[in-house]
Design a protein around this nucleic acid. Structure first.
Lengths: 336, 336
DNA sequence: TTGAAAGCGCTAACAA
DNA sequence: TTGTTAGCGCTTTCAA
């Protein structure tokens, strides 16, 4: 037993017409008479005909699908971005194929390879925390493949990018902690190579400066895998312990929950008196026993915009595009 | 500018061989001499040749991709299932296409249609909370299309199914609440039509019975959309308020966090003294200020098994299969 | 061991 | 307005 669908040929045979007539009638071509169209459409409807997208893709050299690469779908921020992307793709009749890197640059590269070998028309990507070399993406683009970056974007890459104002978000978070009277504000963040890491660090530094607080590099701890591995967070906090920090600005979802887990485990050490602010799109932070001030990103919006830009790129395919970087605002949600 | 890949033809021309020889050499066919193979492989490697999966799919009438339909990826349980599915698919060289229903039966049907019109080889599906009529899935299967259900499974459908022992999990949760001295245990659950709703209700009832507590239907509240809409939870709780319940057993992730949000809003009403136990795969419940005893499902495992079974179905394609339902154990994580 | 040719289902240029 | 035909990139039967 094999799963088979009707083809255009079946219809042609049944109606005594040629396949091209059927094809045209189904696509509502102006060349076909209304009567013929009617007959074809009705018959197609009757047998529940569905065009084979694979054959169509082969012919049109377009798959009508786009790839989206994120580190983890089990992450509020990314799943919201995906929902946004999906909402646009759905309307424009594109299929979305999701791929996870789990913060591995190798997985990222493999996924891109897999997706691009003609099965997607364009790529939405937030770089993995491990990624440093993106020359393969450059090569892809040089060959005319449309790529749009979001959230974690590369410096040197001439294409559309969609990000939030990370610097401002970080500034707001830090400022908020300072306003609470905190002076020794630690910063727990992701991999050094990520754009968001740099931007957020800069915002943090700017807020310190604006308040005449000296920047102390010992208060900044990096996690290469963005908190994907609990031990990197534990190590970071161990090290921070000696600094006598009284507040912490955390640069991501996984890092925030990771920090809270560690803090809970070590609660004899008074971590619970340390004020927390950080980037997170979780919708349960307000249920936590710890008070967390959160910087929220318009993730859904980001997914929508990135997808619109990508589809625009796919459809237009004009070589000398004027690319821009869209910067969306963050929102601070205080909780104290 | 158009994105193009090398084809088998390009290689054939370059090496002065036929396309069939190239095809065979690339697939390591026994018919091709080692020398020719070597030449072809080396050249392919050099130009970084990637076979066009679309052309291959058209020829083989197989896309090497499987669809997975869940209600929401922004749900710990489902994203873990997907990770499990992905881990298997990755190894067996299948692509996974994720689709969300957002608990709408119409979206579900559209997604299935979209995916099956020859672009996927099989389907993994957890029914939406709204779904009642699955005749279209029956029709699909009758035509030889492989389907495997997981988590939310239909009664009447002869195929592989992978679930957890929902009854036992519900029993454990309820029993745990009773052990704490609770007598008026409410039950907040999802749509009546879902298998998990029925099984969990039954487990809840069994635990009551085992403890000689009368079952009170007024203590059971259904949410048609599984808590996707906050208002359905609010309504349910409003109604429960009058019953004087002293504990609650909740049947799902979204419902649990939804309940906690409402409880927080209404905390003057003493909801915080009500013991909570429920099905959730969240990895942050322990950070909540409310104490929640959780029933965890082996979601990753479930995704793995379901995918293995599906791929097995796709590859074997024997008509008279002996189908079974795999039942995995749940785990209770106490927190009090 | 290799090649020629047909065909997967669809679209489109060209012919009628 | 409709049909004929070639071809998208690949696999595979049959012939050489």
């Amino acid at each position: 037993m094999k799963f088979e669908n009707y083809t255009i040929k079946d219809i042609a045979k049944a109606l005594n017409l040629s396949t091209s007539t059927i094809s045209r009638a189904l696509r509502d071509s102006y060349e076909i008479s209304p009567e013929t169209k009617k007959i074809v459409l009705e018959y197609a409807e009757k047998i529940n005909y569905r065009a084979n997208p694979i054959a169509r893709s082969l012919k049109e050299r377009r798959s009508h699908s786009i790839g989206i690469i994120v580190s983890e779908i089990a992450n509020n921020f990314f799943s919201q971005v995906i929902d946004g992307a999906e909402s646009i793709a759905y309307n424009k009749n594109f299929q979305i194929i999701i791929s996870q890197t789990h913060e591995s640059s190798e997985r990222e590269r493999l996924n891109v390879e897999y997706l691009t070998s003609r099965s997607i028309d364009g790529l939405l990507i937030a770089l993995s925390s491990e990624t440093e070399d993106i020359s393969y993406l450059h090569k892809l683009q040089e060959r005319g493949f449309p790529i749009v970056f979001f959230d974690r974007v590369p410096q040197q890459f001439d294409t559309y990018k969609v990000i939030v104002n990370n610097q401002q978000g970080a500034y707001d978070a830090t400022q908020h902690l300072i306003k609470q009277g905190k002076q020794q504000i630690a910063h727990l963040t992701s991999s050094k190579s990520l754009s968001i890491t740099k931007d957020r660090l800069y915002g943090y530094q700017k807020a310190l400066m604006a308040n005449h607080i000296d920047f102390d590099p010992a208060l900044v701890k990096y996690c290469q895998y963005g908190g994907l591995h609990q031990d990197e967070i534990e190590t970071a906090i161990e090290e921070l312990m000696h600094t006598g920090f009284d507040a912490i600005f955390i640069s991501g979802d996984k890092l925030t929950t990771g920090y809270l887990h560690v803090a809970k485990k070590k609660d004899k050490l008074n971590l619970q008196h340390i004020a927390i602010a950080g980037f997170t799109n979780s919708n349960v932070v307000d249920l936590f026993s710890a008070k967390v001030t959160s910087i929220r990103q318009p993730a859904f919006e980001m997914g929508k915009i990135a997808t619109e830009l990508l589809i625009q790129l796919i459809e237009k395919r004009t070589p000398n595009e004027q690319f821009e970087t869209r910067v969306l605002p963050t929102e601070i949600i205080k909780n104290d």
